[in-house]
Design a protein around this nucleic acid. Sequence first.
DNA 1: GGCTTGAATGAAAACGGTTTCTCTGCTATT
DNA 2: AATAGCAGAGAAACCGTTTTCATTCAAGCC
Lengths: 336, 336
Amino acid sequence: MKKKQTVTIYDVAREASVSMATVSRVVNHNHNVKPETEQKVLNVVKKLNYRPNDVARGLASKKTTTVGVIIPNVTNSYFAALARGIDDIAEMYQYNIILTNSDGDEKKEIKALNTLYSKQVDGIIFMGNDISDEVREELRNVRTPVVLAGSVDPKNEFPSVNIDYRKAIYAQFNKLFENGNDRIAFIADNLSRSINKDYRIRGYQDALKDAGVPFRKSLLIEATDVSYESGYKLQERLIKSGATAAIVSNDDVAAGIMNAMGDNRINVPEQFEVATSDNTQLTEMTRPTMSTITQPLYDIGAVSMRLLTKVMDNEEIENNNILLSFGLKKRESTKD
Amino acid sequence: MKKKQTVTIYDVAREASVSMATVSRVVNHNHNVKPETEQKVLNVVKKLNYRPNDVARGLASKKTTTVGVIIPNVTNSYFAALARGIDDIAEMYQYNIILTNSDGDEKKEIKALNTLYSKQVDGIIFMGNDISDEVREELRNVRTPVVLAGSVDPKNEFPSVNIDYRKAIYAQFNKLFENGNDRIAFIADNLSRSINKDYRIRGYQDALKDAGVPFRKSLLIEATDVSYESGYKLQERLIKSGATAAIVSNDDVAAGIMNAMGDNRINVPEQFEVATSDNTQLTEMTRPTMSTITQPLYDIGAVSMRLLTKVMDNEEIENNNILLSFGLKKRESTKD
DNA sequence: GGCTTGAATGAAAACGGTTTCTCTGCTATT
DNA sequence: AATAGCAGAGAAACCGTTTTCATTCAAGCC
């Protein structure tokens, strides 16, 4: 009938006839403890199967070795890929991840921020495309380092890791333009969000201007959300708009559009070209496969976590707003 | 120059001229505090913008309102869907989620378990298809409630939420058999894992027996991993095996097989039928779309989190091993 | 030989809450 | 009027560490 009371640092100290301080030093690999003493303590630790209580540790040291991650939806492959990058690097630096789904909803984001704050996380990685003013305010309030991953901040107030969305769309537009399209639609789930308004659409307009093609508002199309279904439903409207090609900001939506085209006997890419943005695995799974901007998804997550560790350690940061390089991958949904 | 020292319960107590105990009571919505006093405290709380420190709380109360979630890979749509269900219910019950990727690797699983243990999580949800003996041992050691989600335990030692994999495969086999196939392959990433060996393959054999079809070992095919690529590479072997249909245990793998068939001018479903198992969104995105077992993915996660709350609260549990109902969805990759 | 120095250790004060007791006054009961 | 009972509040112990500061002791130095 061994009743397993949790064994504390005090138990170890007593059993090893040393003070708690010494045990603490040993456990934390501190210098200044004689090898023999260390060994003695270590033996007792093993014998008693002592495991430090991280909560007590957190209270005393004011560090929880935990970082909060706010993600719109784990179920979204784009963000899931980032999350994986984040977790891998976090683990490498001995941090754990508290994951919270926000659905990109301001209220939920703020609530999550407050919870994480209460939980005393050492840092926060925020994903959500962009940040509203209220969220910005809250982000300032939680006095813990924040890094934005795959999420823009036009004011560059917070450290962030992204690709250059503006240039990416610019490049993609030009490809399609070279293929002979002069009516190219741009599709995103929310055109007024900063990531679209201030970056992608600008890139779109840059290209328009360079190509000497007039801007048509009707070619800017908003999807109801980032889902396959919403893309599927968009197909008709897309054809009616007179567009012959589309740049889509999300792979699921793009897949929906493409399949709807196929189901309506419109050939992709012969009759309509589709280019997408995230290079998630889905781009290889559809038929035709999808041409896309290539983003280093995993790396965006990984780099932002690494950046966060630097901020948490007060290291000198050369560049707060990191832009990772992107590429263009030609697959079957575009002509060239 | 307001220097923002963190405000503690003590500050609130002083400012409101009450004791810490009273503040604590108010903050925790405890009975036994006069409405006026409560209001007075509440005012100070607001004025000082006091936020309880969850770490201190956790130490004192021995509850962290945090549960650990071990997931093979967030990037896997099947598990991501479960994770979403888990997080939603967790949030509903005021818990947060510490998410750890294990890659289904025993070493990482054990390490994660230990970390979670140190962090004093109130409970753990384990995903990983099945559990090795070492993990089982560790699962016993962490003296915190554990629930398995989408992961079998032949010994039924731990509470779990699943579908009846054996019956599901049985039903699926029969469909394909009725369609005229008598050489039906079964494909999984690891045939010796319990979930396959003890459940799916048994279902497969049950069906074989009922149908009076002899068992052919060559029709049991192991994929190198659960990925689109590994499925794609399997196609040739599949044809050589003489099979005319396949039951696949993972949607990504199934998509790979199907696309490889298409790329090699083998018509699905006319020349080869493919049925898959997870009903992730991918099943609707491929062309042809995929027939599949329908699993309530989100619900498996949600129900297991709910179950965990019950275990954590020491509630009476009527059924420790929950089987959610599954279905069969006919799409384009099978004939009928 | 006295004094400085530094390594090794211990004592005890935080850390910021929860919770158990205990103590007041009232109100209700008889 | 005396007493029981209870609501409301405070004092202080406790949760399990880290960390500061003090102490001891031996070696090194002139």
